[in-house]
Structure formats: structure tokens, C-alpha cells
């Protein structure tokens, strides 16, 4: 079938009196929008591109601000004051250790002294005296 064989006919209908009332309905809308109608598009056409640019700019500024602020905070944190241990008098170190230090077993891992030297150093007795002391106790008879 060819297109020319079909008669041109408008199959669509409109409600009765539609075209009589349409101009009035449009005029009512233009009146409702007021005389400022022509100013509104200019305003929106100005703000539309500005908003598009402003949104990522604000986001960028926030990121930069957060980055700079966090760096500043890190830099401003008080750094612990390190003092060379060798420059302190021995009495001061001993006082400090007596008052604050709480030694754990693991603290001795790095101590380079031999077991015997440790005994002598920490118990403050000779190894012979220590052996005598141990012989005095019969360990297998101790009740835990």
C-alpha cells in the first residue's frame, strides 16, 4: 500500500469549544505571572551558570580548608621534649625510676648484662651469698 492511497484525515478530536477558551486560559496565566515575567528569565539565566560554577567552587574551598586546618592542627600539637639521658645526673634518673617507672619482664630483654651480673646488680649480693640463701630453703618441701 502506498501512502498516497490513504486519504489525509485528522483523526484527533478536541473537546467542544476548546479553541474558544484557550486564548483566555493562556491570558489568565500570563496575567498571573505578572508584569515581572520578562525580568524573571534574565534573573534565572544569570543565576543558572553562576550556580553551576559556584557549587564545585564551594566544594573545592571546603576541601582545601579542611586539608589546611588538619595540617595546622598536626603541626601545632606539642612535641615531647627529648633530653639526652647521658646529660642527666645519675641520682635524678634513679629518683625518676623509683617514682614513676614500673618495670616489666620485657624491659630486661634489651639489657646486655649476663644472668650473673644481673643477680649481682639487682639483688645487691654476691653469688656465693645467694647460693647459701637458696640452700637454706628446701624448695621441694615448700607448699604453694
Amino acid at each position: 500500500m502506498k501512502l498516497n492511497d490513504i486519504p489525509k484525515h485528522n483523526i484527533y478530536k478536541v473537546p467542544e469549544g476548546y479553541f474558544d477558551s484557550l486564548p483566555m486560559r493562556v491570558m489568565e496565566q500570563t496575567a498571573a505571572k505578572g508584569a515581572g515575567a520578562s525580568a524573571a528569565p534574565r534573573f534565572s539565566s544569570f543565576w543558572q551558570p553562576v550556580r553551576l560554577v559556584l557549587a564545585p567552587l564551594v566544594l573545592l574551598l571546603v576541601f582545601v580548608g579542611v586539608f589546611l586546618f588538619s595540617n595546622d592542627v598536626v603541626q601545632q600539637q606539642p612535641q615531647p621534649e627529648y633530653v639526652a639521658l647521658g646529660t642527666l645526673p645519675e641520682a635524678e634518673i634513679v629518683d625518676y625510676l623509683d617514682s614513676y617507672a614500673r618495670l616489666e619482664t620485657s624491659d630486661f630483654d634489651e639489657v646486655s648484662l649476663s644472668d650473673q651480673e644481673l643477680t649481682a646488680e639487682f639483688l645487691n649480693i654476691s653469688s656465693e651469698a645467694a647460693e647459701e640463701e637458696l640452700e637454706y630453703y628446701q624448695l621441694n618441701k615448700l607448699i604453694y
Binding site: 476548546y18 484557550l22 486560559r25 493562556v26 496565566q29 500570563t30 505571572k33 515575567a37 520578562s38 524573571a40 528569565p41
Partner: peptide, 13 residues
């Protein structure tokens, strides 16, 4: 109908 009115409002502006 909606689009026709919209067209004429744009024409007005």
C-alpha cells in the same frame, strides 16, 4: 493542551 499553553507563555515572555 498543557504544552500549547506553555508555548504561548514562552512566546509572551
Amino acid at each position: 493542551d498543557d504544552l500549547t499553553q506553555e508555548v504561548f507563555i514562552k512566546v509572551w515572555k
